[in-house]
């Protein structure tokens, strides 16, 4: 799976080199994270922060790299989970008016989950393929900064590790995040 990510990054670099007059943009966002099912079923989501850097392939299509970090914990006990999600991204911007645009984006990456329980000196990192989609509702301004709210769905398929879990069920993680962000043009 790591090969896919490296290939993806190379793909982005090659594509970007073919588009001379590119427009670069940065998105930075923060949202409330929620986890569904899987190994982290009993965890409560706290926050996800991150951003992406992308270039315009055309006036409407952007490609780039993204990185998001998330934090989950359990209300009961001292368990914590830190998520790191680097990815490549392909996004499309639909301009509905002078002030409003919709931006769906597809992500493909490789996620790392660092589990901790300080009461037992337990630390472990698991990793796996990460795919997801974002939907941003962008409020456009005349300045260099636009604002948006977003919804994100993220799926992580953990690599097989029989010492960690013997069940497929636990390897499938589904998460969502909803929040706000800024776009720097």
């Amino acid at each position: 799976m790591k090969k896919i990510i490296i290939t993806g990054l190379l793909f982005i670099c090659i594509v970007s080199s073919h588009f001379g007059q590119t427009v670069k943009q940065i998105h930075i966002d923060a949202g409330l994270l929620r986890n569904y099912d899987g190994f982290l079923k009993l965890y409560s989501g706290v926050i996800e922060l991150g951003g992406d850097y992308s270039i315009s392939l055309t006036k409407l299509l952007q490609a780039g790299v993204a990185f998001h970090a998330g934090y989950l914990n359990r209300n009961e006990g001292s368990m914590k989970a830190y998520l790191y999600k680097p990815a490549v991204q392909l996004a499309y911007t639909a301009h509905f008016s002078k002030r409003f645009a919709l931006m769906p984006a597809a992500n493909l990456g490789y996620a790392f989950i660092n589990l901790r329980n300080d009461a037992y000196d337990y630390r472990e990192t698991q990793s796996g393929l990460n795919t997801g989609i974002d939907l941003r509702f962008i409020w456009k301004t005349e300045d260099r900064t636009d604002f948006f709210i977003f919804g994100r769905y993220s799926y992580i398929y953990l690599d097989e590790d029989k010492h960690f879990t013997e069940l497929e069920y636990y390897r499938n993680l589904h998460q969502s995040a909803f929040g706000i962000g800024i776009k720097i043009k």
Partner: peptide, 23 residues
């Protein structure tokens, strides 16, 4: 680009649908 990404995602989804647990 769309074609490559579509098939890439399709391949991943297919690969993730294995359910045989040896427990």
């Amino acid at each position: 680009i769309y074609s490559v990404l579509f098939f890439l995602l399709l391949a991943i989804v297919c690969g993730c649908s294995k359910t045989g647990d040896s427990f």
